[in-house]
């Protein structure tokens, strides 16, 4: 059994911080692991710091205020150049099978297919949209039919207070009548002259620019007018029931 040399016998000028792996091969695994852990920690820190720096150095655009006096970009938002796909249970995306049911607390419920939808009075609206995850798309030109027009055609009853946007696979989003029947709230099928891709809600999605973008249901199947609030998919999963971007109503 090898004995450790007495301290006095060591020549410290020849002592290295590194173990002699040739003499002690059993230490090699430990050294390899330490080396790996060091590199992993440095690599992780590099990626994390890089991410933070990239966030801090992101473009800080100063935009003129909106006509209503509110800032163009709501607090906590940053502008991007194109819609981002945010997931969801997709519909089939086909214009052939598209049907929109307008129903609920109305005198004349009805259903339209894609062709009939395009036969209704059309509008084009320039609108900004704001995703609850922090991005905003500014100055999009959206084409479609105003929800207010659908309300008029269905003869919504005066005591209806909410609109439920219904979408594929049972997704719903609740919107107060004020925002849902605003001038800029649409059932839309085109953005900037281009049809929606499937992951953006093709063929037809909702548009409620005054609220966070999850309220603008993709793969739209129905517009339902109701007298009592019916919190929808995200509203029952920790997100705010209303979702005003300027009040940062992100979470419940």
């Amino acid at each position: 059994m090898a004995r450790r040399p007495h301290r006095a016998a060591l020549n410290y000028s020849q002592v290295s911080n590194q173990p002699d792996l040739d003499r002690f091969p059993a230490l090699r695994a430990t050294e390899d692991r330490r080396s790996f852990l060091r590199k992993a920690v440095v690599g992780t820190a590099f990626v994390a710091v890089g991410g933070v720096v990239a966030q801090l150095l992101g473009e800080d655009i100063v935009l003129p205020a909106r006509a209503d006096g509110r800032p163009r970009l709501p607090p906590g938002q940053h502008a991007i150049q194109a819609l981002k796909p945010m997931g969801g249970d997709e519909g089939d995306g086909k214009f052939e099978t598209f049907r929109l049911k307008v129903h609920g607390h109305v005198a004349k419920p009805f259903e339209v297919d894609y062709k009939a939808l395009l036969g209704l009075p059309q509008v084009e609206k320039k609108a900004d949209v704001h995703c609850v995850t922090g991005w905003s798309l500014l100055d999009g030109v959206w084409k479609g039919v105003q929800v207010a027009e659908l309300a008029r055609l269905a003869e919504v009853k005066p005591d209806a207070r909410y609109v439920i946007f219904e979408a594929a696979h049972g997704y719903t989003a609740n919107v107060p009548m004020k925002e849902a029947t605003a001038d800029n709230a649409l059932v839309t099928y085109r953005l900037n002259g281009t049809p929606f891709a499937l992951d953006h809600g093709a063929p037809v999605r909702g548009l409620v620019p005054d609220l966070y973008f999850w309220k603008s249901a993709k793969w739209l199947t129905g517009i339902k007018f109701v007298t009592e609030d019916q919190p929808g998919f995200w509203e029952t999963r920790g997100y705010n029931n209303h979702g005003d971007p300027w009040r940062e109503e992100r979470y419940a």
């Binding site: 049911k101 129903h103 609920g104 607390h105 109305v106 004349k108 419920p109 009805f110 259903e111 339209v112 297919d113 062709k115 009939a116 939808l117 036969g119 209704l120 207010a148 309300a151 008029r152 055609l153 003869e155 919504v156 009853k157 005066p158 005591d159 209806a160 207070r161 909410y162 107060p176 009548m177 004020k178 029947t181 339902k224 007018f225 609030d229 029931n241 209303h242 005003d244």
Partner: peptide, 30 residues
């Protein structure tokens, strides 16, 4: 207004004839 929703806008006069392509549905059970 935001928490309770607001009442429906004053109903505009219904069109004399509904646009073509609207398929009438039975009322929902309420």
């Amino acid at each position: 207004v935001a928490t309770t929703g607001s009442a429906a806008p004053a109903p505009a006069p219904a069109p004399a004839a509904a646009p073509s392509g609207l398929k009438p549905l039975p009322p929902d059970d309420e």
